[in-house]
Design a protein around this nucleic acid. Structure first.
Lengths: 114, 114
DNA sequence: GGAATATATGTCGACTTCCTAGGTATAACC
DNA sequence: GGTTATACCTAGGAAGTCGACATATATTCC
């Protein structure tokens, strides 16, 4: 019943989706499940966030889509990472790490003792 | 001339501002400067982000404001952390750390080798 | 005296991204 | 026949950030 974070940090979803797709081509529904599993139930992507995000990433040519039969024998839209998408992912990961460091600097600044 | 990140990650500014104010009461202009210094020039808060954020935090009673004379001898609006603000800050820090761990889990998942 | 810069606060509209809530459809299971 | 899981989608609203603009004072330099 752990509810994870209240709301996804805006701007991180693209990177996370790109990363999951980099693990292997996958369709929307499965991407959300993988993300939830890998993050140990922390990230729960709502469909209203996921599908617009996938369309966004496809529009930007970071993902490309193809209809295929899924594991369950049903038609699903499989996304795979383009070269441009991989570059973007790498850039976002680097930026994420720099951001974490910067936040860390702020959080670890000690308050003065009286 | 390093330009820092393109855009602040939405949702992190509140925590950062609360943290900086926790270091000691300060006014808007100085808060932005401190944030930039502490983060080694990574965070550059735009005025159009900063002042709305400060008003937001004040509305939520996480900060309280008082007009005082600044170091330069001019009137400035000094913000200080309320008890409620400290609780909020602590909660946001905990959440941030959990989020970082979750993102880390995703980013460190290895891709299959062929 | 005048111009530029730093200090200090603020607002407005555009933009992006996320959520809630709804919708469609198929397949499996009871 | 009803429920659950799978699988896709959209519309409207809320929230936060940005860029641009506006205002005013103090200092510094020419």
């Amino acid at each position: 019943m752990s509810e994870g974070q209240i709301e996804l940090l805006r701007g991180t979803l693209d990177m996370l989706v790109l990363k999951v797709v980099a693990l292997g081509p996958s369709h929307g529904y499965a991407i959300a499940q993988r993300l939830q599993q890998i993050s140990k139930d922390f990230f729960r992507v709502h469909q209203g966030s996921l599908y617009p995000a996938l369309h966004r990433l496809e529009d930007r040519r970071w993902l490309q889509a193809e209809w295929k039969e899924s594991e369950t024998g049903r038609e699903a839209k499989f996304y795979s990472l383009t070269k441009k998408g991989r570059r973007q992912m790498d850039a976002e990961v680097v930026n994420w790490e720099r951001l974490c460091n910067a936040v860390g600097l702020v959080l670890r600044t000690p308050e003065k003792e009286s």
